[in-house]
Design a protein around this nucleic acid. Structure first.
Lengths: 339, 339
DNA sequence: ATGAAAGCGCTAACAA
DNA sequence: TTGTTAGCGCTTTCAT
């Protein structure tokens, strides 16, 4: 049914040249006589020859394949990074494996399959733990980290200015007159969460407030965790404003606040982080910090390609800023209702 | 800096056997003497030898790589399919390229790069146009279609019961006493949209209603298009219930209805399709049809692996049913307000 | 149970 | 400018 595919030698035979010349033609080498090139191209056409990428990889010792390891492929922020990175690398002749690595063991397995087995020329890793637990990681292999702070400058990295975002969110709330602020963090094992929390604390301290433990509750990024975190906070601290470290948790907070009989934003201001799709379609439209994850992915791809194609350059680092988007879940503190 | 990787021959030399025996060991062939095997394994360990996947691909003529072509990698439904498919194939020793193919030319380019250049052993294609425009597609290459109806049984396929879902949504609205129903479709060039529309029409006709053109407006899946479609519909038809073919458009409808001074669900019932994340967190929580996209992706992966590993089996076809999730955007028609 | 020889389809290095 | 000769690192015969 499937006839064997023609090879470079079949083309060579038909064109009456050596297979090497065919190789030169398909690699667009300059050093080919126009007439020979024409003959070869005619032969390629006639046989519908398409070069075999695997054989090329074999001979060159590189695959032009890359991989992106992400905690999952579904979350909007990750998906955006992957889409942007894929598009960027493809424009440069590379292809991207999308791999879900939700835990350490799958990360290790992927490292083995992708890197050790030489399936790819480089990897992008989203949100890895950079505390040294990934002992198999190798700074000599082209790698770009997204969303974690690489320790020791061994790896190229792209990150949001999470601390800056935390500061900005908190200042916004302070500027509205709020004095009882609380925050709901992501898992504190993640750099992202700690950085945003640091921003929250720094902004508060800069304004002369002390930050106490009962102003901080750890969530897991889910709306449900935001819901529960609100209940804990409300019980222990009675905040007038909450900085949720992502939009999903902010949505959970708003629902929980309603269920507790509060109005948002009259009784409680809420600010999120991400500017997720449809953030403006929630009720009320969500105030949040916008992050450009596409740029994040694009930049990571660029750094990766650079470190592959110019192996001697130093690891690169990019920090992307966030931008506040003020909608309707935050407002000036109502003095008469101040608790 | 990077020493050359040990090869199968280095291992062979160290173990004092032929490289062929090493090959047998790493391929877990039975026909190896336990003692020899032990020696070889010790050598592998000592040299930290990891077999090169490219060389293996080269020799075997297969790569254990697959690709998924999707209109994009971000939309929740696509991302779910990709994640599920990736996880499924990885469990079977395969890896998945995620490729965004938003238009025909990128689809064609990917076909060339992935299939013709033999980079992959099979592909999953989400929402392709199966009207014959993709002339390069080849039924002899392992392919699974998701979300389009393959014409002529050449390809394996997985699809939702879109027509059934359309019927169910419409019947739900009818059962609530609504008589003035309208629908907002996705792009009518897509099979999904036409199938859901067919369901809408079939259910209405089965109940003795004639369906007129001004009950149908074409959207593009975006919330914005839902918003605009509502305005058109409201102008021309004054519906009491709207079936939006996805949740984003439903959200747009609700916003538009509010802006027009209507209450949902008191004045207008709205049902969506997808059960997107946070659908229950919108205001009011959205009534919709749930579709299991993970199962969709998993099933597609299974069909693909089957057609690769048992090339002579007939193309498979799976239809997945949808499930209505009744929340608060639909309610019984209020007779006193019937227009 | 093991080894030798011959490729897989291409590119690299050198020669002509 | 073109051809020849060797691989790349593995698997697949086919011997032994």
């Amino acid at each position: 049914m499937n006839k064997p595919r023609p090879t470079i030698r079949d083309v060579a035979a038909l064109a009456g040249v050596s297979h090497q010349t065919v190789s030169r033609v398909i690699n667009e080498s300059e050093r080919v006589n126009p007439e020979t090139r024409a003959r070869v191209e005619a032969a390629i056409e006639e046989l519908s020859f398409v070069p075999n990428a695997i054989a090329r990889s074999m001979a060159q010792g590189r695959t032009f394949n890359l991989a992106c390891f992400s905690p999952n492929l579904i979350d909007y922020t990750f998906a955006q990074i992957i889409e942007a990175a894929e598009s960027e690398v493809r424009q440069h002749g590379y292809f991207l494996f999308a791999c879900a690595a939700p835990d350490e063991s799958s990360f290790a397995a992927l490292w083995e399959q992708m890197v050790e087995k030489r399936r790819v020329d480089g990897i992008i890793v989203i949100n890895p733990y950079m505390d040294g637990r990934h002992t198999f990681m190798n700074p000599n292999f082209p790698t770009v980290i997204i969303g974690s702070n690489p320790r020791g400058d061994h790896y190229s990295a792209v990150n949001l200015d999470n601390k800056g975002g935390g500061v900005e969110a908190t200042r916004h709330l302070l500027s509205l007159g709020h004095q009882r602020l609380a925050t709901i963090t992501g898992p504190l094992a993640e750099d992202v969460s700690r950085d945003r929390l640091n921003g929250f604390q720094a902004a508060l301290q800069a304004s002369g407030y002390e930050v106490k433990p009962d102003q901080i509750v750890e969530g897991d990024w889910s709306a449900t965790s935001g819901y529960r975190a609100f209940q804990v906070l409300w019980e222990s601290y009675h905040p007038t404003a909450i900085f949720a470290q992502n939009d999903r948790m902010a949505i959970g907070v708003i629902r929980a606040a309603r269920d507790a009989g509060l109005r948002v934003p009259e009784d409680l201001s809420v600010i999120g982080f991400d500017d997720m799709p449809l953030a403006s379609y929630f009720d009320p439209p969500l105030t949040t910090l916008r992050q450009d994850m596409m740029e994040n992915g694009r930049e990571a791809a660029r750094l990766l390609l650079e470190s592959i194609e110019q192996p001697d350059t130093e690891p690169g680092y990019r920090m992307l800023s966030t931008q506040i988007v003020i909608r309707n879940t935050t407002q000036k503190l109502n003095d008469t209702e101040r608790r």
